[in-house]
Design a binder for these strands. Structure first.
Length: 488
RNA sequence: GAGAAUAUAGCUCAGUCGGUAGAGCAACUGCCUUUUAAGCAGUGGGUCGAAGGUUCGAGUCCUUCUAUUCUCACCA
């Protein structure tokens, strides 16, 4: 670094601006390769970061990397002149340069740019970790890859420079979000924005982050979900609304959980959860085709097919199938002993719905690799979902499980304000008993429902997890640019 | 919250039984006008995560701490 500071000063003293304002780029690296013709010398002007250098006295080769990839540059002293060539000798891997020249093919066959002039565009003061590559039997072998996970997350910018597959993952993430947005918009649903700072948090069972508004001198929460606000908009007369929402949950961090994560929530009036399952099937299938070009993905060592229809299974049937026990019609006592027979240690405080969830989470969910809709959850686990039209004690709810993890959650929304009040008050009681994840009674939300909300289907998709599955990434940190880490 | 593993040069890693720090790449100086893990010759580079302790002597043994990774717990 010391040396590079000196070089920077050196360049400035010799009249070279190490940080000029613009450079006229006419082609990306990929364009040069794509438009190359053996018989023609096409003039090009490319720019990018120097990634390799091979200096040979009075001529040099180097690769620059731009947004589309790498292109080799050939630089000859005769061609660019003495002064420019000695400037070039002061450049390092990591510097950003612009090159004007023409495309040609080298003796060893690589399409390259024969430089006629070049310009330093930005001097790099820190050495980047250079990984070298070699082709062995057609396989690319990478030497000394920048692989320390902590450093890669802390200095994602370096990770992106050096590890091209990281860049690809995030490009795909963007494509997934763009596709979902276009899919929803094309159906006539409205993209909206609702508060992130909320005086009362709700819509999920989770602990929030708390903050303080100085001028109002009041406590505010970072949202854990946007569900209750979107439903207010359905009350307000929008037929379909969705929001890509950063949500915040003050909980543990592991490879499936980041304290801030992205969900898209969608609410559509006059529809139910059965209809929503079809939407999810279509969405996942078409997203996979659009982004990956095929309807299967490889995730955690399994091939997952996203071709509809997905399997549908009630939670009771799934437990019957994977545990061989029947939970239908069982009371809390019986469920508890069933769980015990299966070898589950249970907190004596939890109720029957939670016991079922525990059994499911322990024995069923991890084994659901192919996309599967799990339906008809116990009412007490789902205070915002509508009672099942024919199965007492259950609600019209589904989760989509794939790769052993929940990807989506959806229900026919509860729109009876009286029952909704009862459910929230029951939550409030749980809260008083010490369940700090139980929901809070949101009087304004209840007031909205009292004006009348049409029948409505709601959906939440965990974008991070969906990206993980579609990109075959095993950690949520690999699909979030800047995952949360403790300070250095 | 619990356990395990990891932490040594810019990067990737060695470092034996406790004896005073190593390699490859990167960097620096030469030479080299079609190279591609360029090559050849030479040079420099370290608070061994932090703080204590044991010892004549600690990268190595002990204690505490910090960070990361993995597993478990928690978590719609």
């Amino acid at each position: 670094m010391q040396r590079r500071h000196e070089e920077r000063r050196h360049l400035m003293e010799s009249g070279v601006n190490p940080y000029p304002c613009t450079f006229d780029v006419t082609a990306y690296a990929a364009d040069v390769l794509a438009t190359f013709r053996e018989e023609e010398q096409l003039p090009v002007s490319v720019a990018g970061r120097i990634m390799t250098i091979r200096k040979m006295g009075k001529a040099s080769f180097f690769h620059i990397q731009d947004a589309t990839g790498r292109i080799q540059i050939y630089l000859k002293k005769d061609e660019v002149g003495e002064k420019a060539y000695s400037t070039f000798k002061l450049l390092d891997i990591g510097d950003i340069v612009g090159v004007k020249g023409y495309s040609f093919r080298t003796k060893t066959g690589e399409i390259s740019v024969h430089a006629q002039a070049f310009e330093l565009l930005s001097k790099s003061l820190r050495p980047i970790p250079v990984a070298k590559e070699k082709e062995v039997d057609g396989q690319k072998v990478v030497y000394d890859a920048f692989s320390d996970k902590e450093l890669r997350y802390r200095q994602r910018y370096v990770d992106l420079i050096v590890n091209p597959e990281v860049r690809q993952t995030f490009i795909r993430r963007s494509a997934i979000v763009a596709f979902i947005r276009q899919f929803f918009t094309s159906k006539g649903w409205l993209e909206v924005e609702t508060p992130i700072l909320q005086p009362i948090y709700g819509g999920a069972a989770a602990r929030p982050f708390t903050t303080h508004h100085n001028a109002l001198d009041m406590q505010l929460y970072l949202r854990i979900a946007n569900e209750l606000y979107l439903k207010r908009l359905i009350v307000g007369g929008f037929d379909g609304v969705f929001e890509f929402a950063k949500d915040f949950r003050n909980e543990g961090i592991d490879r499936f959980h980041n304290p801030e994560f992205t969900q898209v929530e969608l609410y559509v009036a006059y529809k139910d959860y059965n209809w929503m399952m079809e939407q999810v099937e279509e969405l996942l299938y078409r997203t996979a085709l659009a982004v990956n070009g095929c309807d299967t993905v490889s995730f955690l060592g399994s091939e997952i097919s996203l071709k509809p229809p997905f399997r549908r299974l009630t939670i009771a049937d799934s437990i019957r199938e994977y545990c061989g026990v029947d939970i239908d019609g069982k009371n809390e006592q019986e469920l508890r002993s069933t769980a015990k027979d299966l070898g589950l240690e249970l907190d004596p405080k939890i109720g029957s719905g939670k016991i079922i969830d525990e059994i499911f989470g322990e024995f069923v969910e991890p084994r659901l690799i192919q996309p599967t809709f799990i339906t008809d959850y116990p009412t007490e686990m789902s205070p915002l979902a509508k009672e099942h039209r024919s199965k007492p004690g259950l609600v019209e709810r589904f989760e989509l499980i794939a790769g052993g993890k929940e990807l989506c959650n959806s229900f026919s929304e509860l729109n009876d304000p009286v029952i909704q009040r009862e459910r929230l008050e029951a939550q409030a009681k749980l809260r008083l008993r010490g369940d700090d994840e139980a929901m809070i009674v949101d009087e304004d939300f209840l007031r909205a429902l009292e004006y009348g909300m049409p029948p409505c289907a709601g959906l939440g998709i965990g974008i991070d997890r969906m990206v993980m599955v579609l990109c075959g990434q095993e950690s949520i940190r690999d699909v979030i640019f800047f995952p949360h880490l403790k300070p250095e």
